[in-house]
């Protein structure tokens, strides 16, 4: 019987740990911070988290660049709409 391949899913694990860290960071920022820097930071964190989920969890990493562009555009449009609405208040 051939030996089973035992690849440890390290990229996914690192992405997960980073996602937990970023979520905790935005939760703590949301406790008392306010202003342009706070809004920009939370939006950047959200876009990075979205990118990590798409790339490492959804498995987009090795597929055609078109799919990266489509998913990336989605995140960019959402981030831009929220950013414009919040920063123009």
């Amino acid at each position: 019987m051939p030996a089973l391949k035992t690849t440890h899913p390290k990229p996914c694990t690192y992405a997960w740990l980073l996602l937990l860290f970023l979520s905790t960071a935005s939760y703590l920022l949301g406790q008392d911070k306010t202003g342009t820097l706070f809004i920009t930071s939370v939006l950047c964190i959200t876009v990075i988290k979205g990118h990590l989920i798409i790339r490492y969890f959804m498995g987009i990493r090795g597929v055609k660049p078109l799919w990266h562009i489509i998913m990336g555009t989605y995140l960019a449009i959402i981030g831009a709409i929220i950013g414009i609405a919040y920063l123009s208040q």
Partner: peptide, 26 residues
């Protein structure tokens, strides 16, 4: 499994945007 997984990750993706928008940003 891949099909079910992609759907589950989409639910996760939507939640992280919702979490920032409704709970965090003010």
């Amino acid at each position: 499994i891949e099909t079910g997984s992609v759907y589950w990750h989409m639910v996760d993706l939507v939640w992280i945007i919702l979490f920032s928008l409704v709970y965090i940003l003010h």
